[in-house]
């Protein structure tokens, strides 16, 4: 069933490619706005780059959270999923994974290109990509809880940002920190291991909490 839900969500994303592209272009635009607002001084941009890319990734991933459950909620398919004899947590894990494939992976692939805009050295680009690769699934998993809790509420989109952005902070700190450490010539593997630990913890707990939230929201 895990495979079915991923297949289904990817199929749906294929049929609505514009949604996927919107998130990606949002990411690109936000990152490109910063040089315009603070000036094109290369040294400053280089120091800012890891933070800017990470904050933009946080916002882009958060904006697409609305799609994770709300379409299924409106047409009644979510109700059917709650009645599935299989574990709802597993199903939520599948949906979060599909969400990451559709929104997280494009961001990871685009990040090195944006890093070049900011004149990041090659090895910093690699670290940035690796950190995003480990960190963006955490965003989808934690975001699933927020999306499930705000299902069908007035102003759910803004509310979800209040709920999940504070929880994203550790990923942001270590994600951007890894790149900064690399640029400063210090070891960055501790940062990446910590993001990896966050990923493991959220794989275990987040689907369970989100499944519980879905049951609460649909009652």
């Amino acid at each position: 069933m895990f495979m079915w839900i991923i297949k289904r969500d990817l199929l749906l994303a294929m049929r609505r490619q514009s949604d996927v592209l919107t998130t990606l272009f949002f990411f690109i635009i936000v990152v490109s706005l910063f040089p315009l607002s603070v000036g094109p001084e290369m040294n400053m941009l280089r120091t800012m780059a890891p933070g800017v890319v990470w904050v933009a990734a946080l916002l882009a991933s958060m904006l697409s959270l609305g799609r994770m459950f709300s379409n299924d909620y409106v047409d009644g398919t979510l109700e059917q999923m709650l009645l599935s004899p299989q574990s709802l947590s597993l199903l939520v894990l599948g949906k979060a994974f599909a969400h990451w494939l559709v929104t997280g992976v494009p961001l990871v692939l685009m990040a090195p290109v944006l890093g070049i805009q900011y004149d990041l050295p090659t090895d910093a680009l690699l670290v940035l990509t690796a950190a995003l690769l480990l960190g963006t699934p955490v965003l989808s998993l934690i975001g699933a809880i927020g999306a499930a809790l705000t299902l069908g509420l007035r102003g759910g989109g803004v509310l979800v940002s209040l709920l999940v952005l504070p929880l994203y902070i550790p990923v942001l700190i270590f994600g951007a920190g890894a790149v900064e450490a690399n640029m400063a010539g210090v070891a960055f593997d501790a940062h990446l291991s910590l993001i990896g630990a966050f990923l493991l913890v959220s794989i275990v707990f987040a689907p369970w909490a989100a499944a519980l939230s879905l049951r609460v929201s649909l009652e």
């Binding site: 809880i145 809790l149 709920l163 504070p166 929880l167 902070i169 550790p170 966050f198 707990f205 909490a209 519980l212 939230s213 609460v216």
Partner: peptide, 14 residues
Amino acid sequence: AIIALVGVINIPII
């Protein structure tokens, strides 16, 4: 309750 519990687990990490 869910968001408060998620928060309380996260506070030490944060």
